[in-house]
């Protein structure tokens, strides 16, 4: 398991691995928003939590189709499935690797991007906390979508269509935590619901992903 995680991280940072792709995309979206809505700082500050969450979600989506497709194409997915590692474990490790290379950098960079969006000063902690707790769910749900579309040529678009609706609950509660934080309201209950979504996804979806992957490999 550790070896698989190490391999996936190593592949991500080597040439063509796509590390930093999501982060750059996140940056570009956030930079574009003020051009679109105009330089009104009050308005930007108000929409900042929602915009940051939508941008993080799209950035996560960008690298999802690589999760299994690359291993499928070069045959290593077949070999991993026949290895002693349980398939559910393989999927969890791949989702964790995706989170470490996509989700975690987003969490770390969010305060800087929030500055670009003129987020009120007391909202930073809630934003980072909501992303930290919410982005693992994005990776795990994404792994399910990637497993569903693994055998399909150019399945990336289909993957987005399948996965984005599944992201809605995470987005609602994540953005709600960030919004309440920015408005200095208590945000415990949406935060707990967000954590619930993350843990439920982490506990249940690897089983479902393993089942669809087995069907797809036949």
């Amino acid at each position: 398991m550790i070896a698989l995680l190490a391999r996936d991280l190593r592949l991500a940072v080597r040439a063509g691995g796509g590390f930093g792709l999501g982060l750059s995309f996140f940056l570009i979206v956030i930079v574009l928003i003020p051009f679109g809505v105009g330089p009104e700082t009050g308005l930007l500050g108000r929409i900042a939590p929602g915009v940051l969450w939508v941008a993080a979600l799209l950035a996560c989506l960008l690298s999802l189709d690589r999760m299994f497709a690359l291993d499928f194409e070069d045959g290593s997915l077949d070999l991993l499935v026949t290895s002693p590692l349980p398939l559910e474990g393989i999927i969890t490790v791949k989702a964790v690797a995706h989170w470490l290379t996509t989700g975690l950098p987003l969490v770390a960079a969010a305060p800087v991007f929030a500055l670009l969006m003129n987020l009120p000063g007391h909202g930073y902690f809630a934003l980072v906390l909501s992303l930290l707790i919410g982005t693992p769910a994005l990776s795990v749900i994404g792994a399910f979508g990637a497993a569903l579309t693994v055998g399909i040529k150019r399945g990336g678009l289909l993957l987005s269509l399948l996965v984005l609706p599944l992201y809605v609950p995470t987005l609602i509660f994540g953005a709600e935590v960030a919004r309440r934080g920015a408005e200095s309201q208590p945000y415990t209950s949406p935060l707990l619901l967000l954590a619930g979504i993350s843990f439920a996804a982490l506990a249940l979806l690897p089983m479902a992903s393993a089942a669809v992957l087995r069907v797809n490999l036949r």
Partner: peptide, 20 residues
């Protein structure tokens, strides 16, 4: 198909499978 990762070295490829 061989299941080889082209950006890893030969040694890294083999070591990965031996760990697995």
């Amino acid at each position: 198909v061989d299941g080889i990762k082209t950006t890893l070295t030969v040694k890294e490829n083999l070591l990965f499978w031996s760990h697995v």
